[in-house]
Simulated assay, not measured.
Amino acid sequence: MSLRLIKLNSGYSIPSVGMGCYNLPPAQTSSIVYEACKLGYRHFDTAVLYHNEAEVAQGISKYLQDHPGAKRLEFFYTTKVWDLQQGTAGTRKAVKDMVAKIGNLEYIDLLLLHSPLPGTKKRLESYAVLQEAVEAGHVRSVGVSNYGRHHVEELLQWSGLTHPPAVNQIEISPWVMRTELAQWCLAQGIHVEAYAPLTHGNRLAAPEPGLALAAACKKYGKSPAQVLVKWSLSKGYIPLPKSKTPSRLKENLEVNDFELTPDEIAGIDQPDSYDPTDWECTDAP
């Protein structure tokens, strides 16, 4: 299936659904990514922390090699600088290592700072290096992850900014909506990638009967995962569902044949809930 493309403030386009590669076993990652490419995925999200950057790139590269009609431009490869690498020297080395891992992919589509935790000085030093990588042609778009509004404002007000963040990647689901932060980012022209949109599976096994999620699943003949991916898309976000099972990978993409109504979206919303399944550092100093 074809994925809608979203134009970033860098001028490049990103597929509207990506495959999260966190916790994929490195020994299996290349083959899982290859199968995902066959199913229609064109957007892959990895990180230094995941220890599978090279394997993600290998899976995409093998697919391109085996399918001459497929073009590199169709694919979108994201990775992230880990916290311990932040700072000028550390980030320069990280970028060099990342570029060495992409093989035949030639460039990194999106490079993010994984979190704001290293503090203002290292955040800005690292972002300066990301901008250098864009100017050198190694990276096309840059951005941040797990940033709160004050972190993004710090960056937007920085005198050294030449490439505004294209993306803020944060955990978003109906149970950790972050509506104010996400809508503010969108208003700044910064797209929002929603990681853990399926709550790491915590809420998928048995949606509470009688509630809007279960009702939508029944009405449209869709799984909870599919409805949650659609919910995220309906909010204007770019969801990054993760699975290593081909049937579920396929299912997570099959969301173009139904639309949630505004009432259904509002019913799935859990504005009074705050239940992140991952780390929380949007409120870090």
Rank of each mutant, 00 (worst) to 15 (best):
H67M: 10
M19Q: 07
S273I: 11
E153A: 11
D275T: 15
K250D: 12
H191S: 12
E55H: 04
Y22V: 12
E208I: 12
G143C: 05
A133K: 09
V95W: 07
S234W: 01
G69Y: 12
S145R: 05
Q58P: 11
G221Y: 03
S243W: 01
V81P: 09
A47W: 03
S30F: 02
S247G: 09
S10D: 06
I238Q: 01
E259N: 10
E259V: 02
Q28K: 15
A70E: 12
V192D: 06
P262E: 04
V33G: 03
A212V: 03
G160D: 07
D283K: 15
S30N: 12
E106L: 15
K62C: 06
T88L: 14
L240E: 06
P224I: 02
A94W: 03
L198Y: 06
A89M: 11
Y12E: 14
L240P: 06
P165Q: 07
S232Q: 04
A128S: 15
R42Y: 05
A94V: 08
A216H: 00
G210W: 01
R140V: 08
P25Y: 10
Q157I: 10
V142W: 07
H138E: 14
G148L: 09
D109K: 10
I60Q: 01
A136F: 10
Y12V: 12
S126E: 09
K219L: 06
Y195P: 09
W175Q: 06
A216Y: 00
G210V: 01
G20C: 00
I32D: 05
Y220D: 01
Q86F: 11
N52M: 03
E154N: 09
Y195N: 09
Y274H: 15
E55Q: 14
N104Y: 13
Q28P: 08
D66A: 15
G20W: 04
K38W: 05
P165L: 09
S30Q: 07
A182V: 07
W175F: 10
M19H: 00
Q85P: 13
E106I: 13
I14H: 04
N256Q: 13
V95F: 08
L112K: 06
Q86I: 07
R178P: 08
Y50L: 04
Y63T: 11
E55M: 07
V167I: 15
K80M: 06
A27I: 14
Y41S: 06
E180R: 13
L112Q: 04
P239T: 02
N202T: 14
N9C: 08
I32M: 00
K218P: 01
Y50E: 06
T277L: 14
S159N: 14
E193Q: 15
C185T: 08
S30A: 15
I6K: 08
M1W: 13
T91A: 11
P239N: 09
L24G: 05
I170L: 09
L113P: 00
L117I: 15
P239I: 05
S141R: 04
Y50W: 08
P246H: 03
Y147S: 06
W231A: 03
P26L: 03
E53Y: 05
P262S: 00
L155P: 07
T282M: 14
L240F: 08
E280N: 13
A57Y: 09
K250E: 11
N146I: 07
P165W: 05
P239K: 00
V255Y: 05
R149N: 10
Q226Y: 01
P207C: 00
A194I: 05
L213R: 04
T88S: 14
